[in-house]
């Protein structure tokens, strides 16, 4: 029994060596509401056929726990790349429960959400230590020069890990993805709409190129 089991395991290692299928663990980061979960759901749907891994919401901090989806195989750029995707709560430097009350939550609900949101940000920060690369999602209608963006980029640079900037929401009339490119010229930027599914082929090619 034991022999067969270890034979099978060795075969797996051997196969993965031959085909060079190293698995990269990629974290999805960005400010609240940038579209991280929308993008994570897209990637999972496109490459595993499974359903959503997280709930999308116009209310910020909907994702308050990181969710990992293992073993995705992305075929792009003539290569096939194996990924684990981690949809994180993202980062923020401030959280005010009153903001949630503006969306019609009770004070009690809003305070609970705010508490969980602070824990979620800490969780996202802790995840930085366990990743091979980051997709940094930004809302193209917003100012890209934010501390959250600068901090994520600085940390990936300090760790010498690959980073791909996703300029999301290009379907919106005020989207200005060129501002993102100008702000961070040292990193690759792909413009997409995670909601409408625009330009995802380019994103998958870039993922294969930078994380493969």
């Amino acid at each position: 029994m034991g022999v067969f089991k270890s034979l099978r395991m060795n075969l797996g290692i051997w196969l993965s060596r031959i085909f060079g299928k190293k698995r990269a663990r990629i974290g999805i980061y960005g400010p609240p509401n940038a579209g991280k979960t929308t993008l994570a759901n897209r990637i999972v749907k496109d490459w595993s056929g499974d359903g959503a891994i997280g709930t999308v919401s116009p209310v910020p901090h909907e994702t308050r726990r990181a969710v990992r989806k293992e073993g995705l195989v992305i075929n792009a750029n003539g290569a096939s790349i194996h990924l684990d995707i981690v949809d994180t709560p993202g980062m923020a430097t401030k959280i005010d429960f009153r903001e949630f009350m503006a969306y019609g939550m009770s004070e009690e609900e809003a305070k609970k959400r705010a508490k969980e949101a602070t824990e979620g940000v800490i969780e996202a920060i802790k995840w930085l230590d366990d990743l091979d690369g980051v997709l940094l999602v930004m809302d193209s209608t917003e100012d890209p020069y934010t501390q959250v963006n600068v901090t994520v980029i600085g940390n990936m640079e300090a760790r010498n890990l690959p980073l791909l900037i996703v300029a999301n929401k290009i379907d919106l009339p005020h989207a200005a993805p060129s501002r993102i490119k100008a702000a961070f010229p040292q990193h690759p930027v792909v413009q997409i709409s995670a909601l409408e599914g625009n330009n995802l082929d380019e994103l998958y090619n870039a993922i294969a190129l930078h994380f493969g």
């Binding site: 940000v121 800490i122 920060i125 930085l128 501390q147 901090t151 980029i153 940390n155 300090a158």
Partner: peptide, 11 residues
């Protein structure tokens, strides 16, 4: 601050 200090400050 360094990037590491920034992330600790946020935490």
């Amino acid at each position: 601050l360094t990037p590491e200090e920034e992330v600790r400050l946020i935490e």
